[in-house]
Amino acid sequence: MKISPLTKQLITEGFLKTAIRAPSQLNLPPGAMRFALEQLCRAIPKNPDVQIRRLRMAGLRAEELKPQRQATQLIFHIHGGAFFLGSLNTHRAFLTQVAARTQMQVLHLDYPLSPEHPYPEALDALFDAYCQLLDQGVQAKDIILSGDSCGANLALALALKLRQEQLPQASGLILLSPLLDLTLSSESLRYNGKHDALLSIEALEAGIHYYVPKSVDRADPAVSPFFADLAGLPPIHVQAGSKEILLGDAQRFKDKAAEAGLAVEFKIYTGMWHNFQMFSAWFAEGRRALADLAAFAHRLDQD
């Protein structure tokens, strides 16, 4: 029997709310949450045409995902997980889909997580990895910084740090379901609180508590890049689902980036929850999101 798209979506939302969002509201130890998330992500199918090679970058475990021998662009992706979850294992399958759809090489790093490694350790490690790419002869114009959820926060923070250090900037930024304001002032946290199938306010609060030291103001642009001066950043592609609690972060950032004169495009996907792109194998909106992401990346490649 063929299941309708709406029925499939409702079943998936119910499963995610039970298996991920509900446990995240219980203040479980980070280790238990990490293990559970890795097990659940094993159900996401990998693209068999993408080759995966393990390597180390600036002391970090990393993976290179290649859909073809030659690729003109490198997508430097930073995974999400509220700063204390996520790994090579949780995002491997999703990133094979990104590599296959863009036909670009994807570099995925296992950056240090909080609470064991609070700010600025993750950002510093990612900055060192980017610098190693430049030292190896990779041109900045051939790098696209990408991230989902808190990974989008770190991708934007990395771009700002590159500007501060006067280093060559990547050709563009891809921000998927971005968490950019750690003061949690977006209205969508309230009106989408019960609609988001994946992310809970409790998980966000726990992650921010783990990540931001008490000595750092949560409105500091280094941890909440929404509040940064955005002048001089490269073109930006932003995606969010209409049901996700971080929708407001994406919408407000889009407006601020446009006011700063940046080339920014914002895509919203009806009925989708936080990080819905990871489920692109099963949902048309997820596949459309990957197609939009790929179209943006290809435009950068042509410039």
Rank of each mutant, 00 (worst) to 15 (best):
M1L: 03
S4F: 11
P5D: 09
L6Q: 07
L6H: 09
K8Y: 01
T12C: 09
T12H: 07
E13G: 13
G14V: 04
T18H: 00
A22M: 10
A22V: 09
Q25R: 11
Q25N: 13
N27S: 14
L28K: 12
P29T: 14
P30L: 10
R34P: 07
F35H: 15
F35V: 15
F35Y: 15
A36R: 11
E38N: 06
L40D: 06
C41Y: 12
C41Q: 08
R42T: 13
P45C: 06
P48R: 02
P48W: 03
Q51I: 10
R53G: 09
R56L: 03
R56S: 04
G59A: 05
K66F: 12
Q70E: 11
H77A: 13
G81F: 15
G81T: 00
L85D: 06
S87T: 15
S87H: 05
S87Y: 12
N89M: 13
F94G: 00
F94K: 02
V98A: 15
A100K: 12
R101P: 06
R101M: 14
Q103K: 09
L109I: 12
L109E: 03
Y111H: 10
Y111V: 11
P112H: 06
P112T: 07
E116H: 01
H117I: 12
P120C: 02
L123S: 06
D124L: 11
A125E: 11
A125Y: 10
L126A: 14
L126N: 13
F127G: 01
C131I: 04
C131E: 09
Q132K: 01
L133C: 03
L133T: 00
D135A: 14
D135M: 01
Q136F: 12
G137V: 14
D142Q: 10
D142S: 15
I143N: 02
L145G: 00
G147I: 02
D148A: 04
C150F: 14
C150D: 04
C150Q: 01
N153W: 15
A155K: 03
A157Y: 10
A157G: 11
K161M: 08
K161L: 08
Q166V: 03
L167G: 10
L173P: 11
I174M: 08
L175G: 00
P178V: 04
L179S: 11
L180H: 10
L180K: 01
L182Q: 02
S185T: 11
L189G: 13
H195V: 00
D196M: 14
E202T: 14
E202G: 02
A206E: 15
A206I: 14
I208M: 01
H209V: 15
Y211M: 03
Y211G: 00
D217K: 02
R218T: 13
F227C: 06
A228G: 12
A228E: 08
L230C: 07
A231N: 14
P234Q: 08
H237Y: 13
H237K: 05
Q239Y: 01
Q239W: 09
S242N: 07
I245F: 05
L246S: 06
A250W: 07
R252M: 15
K254S: 05
A258C: 04
E259T: 15
A260K: 06
L262H: 08
L262R: 12
Y269E: 00
G271S: 12
M272V: 02
F276P: 07
S280H: 12
W282Q: 08
A289E: 00
L290C: 04
A295T: 14
A295D: 05
